[in-house]
Each structure stands twice: as structure tokens, then as C-alpha cells.
Design a protein around this nucleic acid. Structure first.
Length: 286
DNA sequence: ATGGCTGTTATCCG
DNA sequence: CCGGATAACAGCCA
């Protein structure tokens, strides 16, 4: 479920309920998800530690834990990434574990579960991945100038550049197409041809798209039941009580051949860097 | 039923 | 250095 908005919604869900809980036992069912840590080092680092804070950076979840006396010298940063299909949530201790459970943190009467059908995600202590992240798109330092500067020396298509986490931290495949549509920029335009004015429109479009997705996600009850495209929580969710259909909020993504919501021209699909891109050839000229 | 597709990213190769 | 291809894995869909 993971682009920046989905991670943000999850962080907001966990931030009020995780702090204060203490790790009493750890089960690592899929060792690859803790790489480059080993199950032993991760277990040793977390055992007896208490959750203090939950934050987000790009698509990463940051869990701060510390010993019972909350001394800063005794603190641990646990880092999570959901990959393509990861989920993290609390469940009662006596309920059966889902099929693709990767890690379980035992927290008294509840379990903190990391479940991931494709096992592309991570839960570990490796801060290395955070080092090369670019600007947070929803913060003030993400401006037309900074975006243009990071695009200026590349011949690559703008859509591909947007997926680079050093350019926009947290951007993903769906919202890259959506942002370009709202900014009226073709995904195939060479990055170096995005001038300051276009970069400015793109900054606004990115912020609007991400904020709206966060807002919508906040209205969806976090029920985590079901799998697949039509039951998944965030992308195509029709979760009980959800306000509206998520797919309706996407103006171009997965809409190949359907009429553009602005001009009725059929939406096109192409493949860039092995990822699907969707755009309106009329509203998004090169 | 087989092949193509999927929200991510690390790594390899030219 | 840059950019494209591939791999990691499981499931859904035509």
C-alpha cells in the first residue's frame, strides 16, 4: 500500500497507539526482511525496549524506542519500509497470524505485525537507506527552484526523474502520473526542459495530490481485511464505511482508453523505466 | 492455464 | 556517471 500518503496515514494511525508499549518477545519469520541486520542483532536491540515515537521520512516509517528510563543514550531507531505489499498493525495476541507474516513484536496483550505478501519491504536498524533521500514534498524547502535545479541536468523523462527518491522523497508510480496530469506536463518531457514556471506548477500539483490522498486515507477505517486490487485498503479500497471510491479520485492512473476528465480525449498508457505511465495527450503537451 | 501485470528499490551491466 | 534491465516474491487477471 505504499507511497508517501499511505505511509503518512499509517504513521498517524500508529503514533497514538504504539508509544508506551514494550517489546517482550520477537518472532522473525522471514529473515530477509531484516537484512542487513540479522534476526539475532535485531532481537537483541529491541528486546525490553519501549516505543516512544512514530514518524515518517519519505516512504519510511521511523520508530523510536528506548529503555524504561527513557535515557537518550539507550535509544533505538527501528526503520520500516512497506515495499509493494507491506502492512503494519496491531492485533490481539490470541488471533491467528496471517499467511505472509514477516515479523511479530509481542507487546503484552497485543502483537505488532509486519505482514508482506511479496516480502519486498524491510524492518531493520539500517539508517543507510535514509542518507540519500531528497526533500520532503510537503515541507517548505520543497520549492520550484529546488525542483528545477534537481531536474536541470538530466535528459531523462520527467516522470522517471520524479520517481527518484533524491528528487522527491516519497513519490511513487501512481502519484507521479497524477501530479504530472494536474500540472499539465507530459510525462515524456525531458527533465531539462522543465522550466521554473513548470516546476512551480509541478510543486503545487504534487502537494495537492499528496495532501488530498492523505486526507482521503484518513477517512478510511484501517480494517486491513482482504487482498488484491479490489479489496486492498488504499489503492482500490471499498472498505466498509469508506467515503467514496478511491479509484474515482485517480484522474489518469489505470485509466488507459477512458475519457480524460477535462477534455474527453482517451487517456494513454506507456512504459517508462519498466513502470506504467498514464497521461492525457491533449492536456499534457510535450 | 499461461503469460503479463502490480504500489519498490538494490544491483548489475554497457 | 548515466540509464536501462533485472531480480527479489506472490497473487490476480485476461
Amino acid at each position: 500500500m505504499p507511497e508517501l500518503p499511505e505511509v503518512e496515514v499509517l504513521v498517524r494511525h500508529l503514533a497514538p497507539i504504539l508509544p508506551g508499549r514494550t517489546v517482550e518477545q520477537i518472532s522473525i519469520l522471514r529473515p530477509k526482511v531484516v537484512y542487513p541486520d540479522t534476526p539475532q542483532t535485531l532481537a537483541t536491540a529491541l528486546m525490553g525496549q519501549t516505543f516512544r515515537q512514530v514518524r515518517r521520512r519519505a516512504k519510511y516509517l521511523l520508530f523510536e524506542l528506548s529503555g524504561s528510563r527513557q535515557s537518550p543514550t539507550n535509544s533505538t531507531l527501528l526503520i520500516g519500509h512497506l515495499g509493494m505489499t507491506g502492512r503494519m498493525y496491531l492485533q490481539p495476541r490470541d488471533q491467528p497470524l496471517p499467511k505472509h507474516t514477516a515479523v511479530v513484536l509481542h507487546l503484552g496483550t497485543e502483537l505488532f505485525l509486519y505482514e508482506d505478501t511479496r516480502y519486498f519491504g524491510r524492518l531493520n536498524l539500517d539508517v543507510g537507506a535514509l542518507q540519500s533521500l531528497g526533500p520532503e514534498p510537503l515541507e517548505a524547502h520543497f520549492t520550484a527552484e529546488t525542483l528545477r535545479d534537481s531536474l536541470q541536468r538530466s535528459n531523462q523523462a520527467i516522470k522517471i526523474r520524479l520517481l527518484d527518491q533524491t528528487v522527491v522523497a516519497g513519490m511513487g508510480n501512481i502519484y507521479a502520473s497524477e501530479s504530472l496530469f494536474r500540472a499539465g506536463i507530459s510525462p515524456r518531457r525531458p527533465a531539462r526542459k522543465v522550466d521554473l514556471a513548470a516546476a512551480g506548477r509541478l510543486v503545487i500539483a504534487i502537494q495537492d495530490v499528496l495532501q488530498e490522498a492523505i486526507q482521503f486515507g484518513s477517512t478510511v477505517p484501517l480494517g486491513f481485511a482482504g487482498t488484491g486490487r479490489h479489496n486492498g485498503l488504499f489503492y482500490y479500497g471499498q472498505a466498509a464505511g469508506a467515503v467514496g471510491d478511491y479509484a474515482e479520485r485517480l484522474r489518469v492512473y489505470d485509466r488507459a482508453g477512458l475519457p480524460c476528465v477535462h477534455c474527453a480525449t482517451p487517456i494513454r498508457r506507456c512504459v517508462q523505466a519498466a513502470r506504467s505511465t498514464y497521461w492525457c495527450p491533449r492536456c499534457q503537451p510535450r
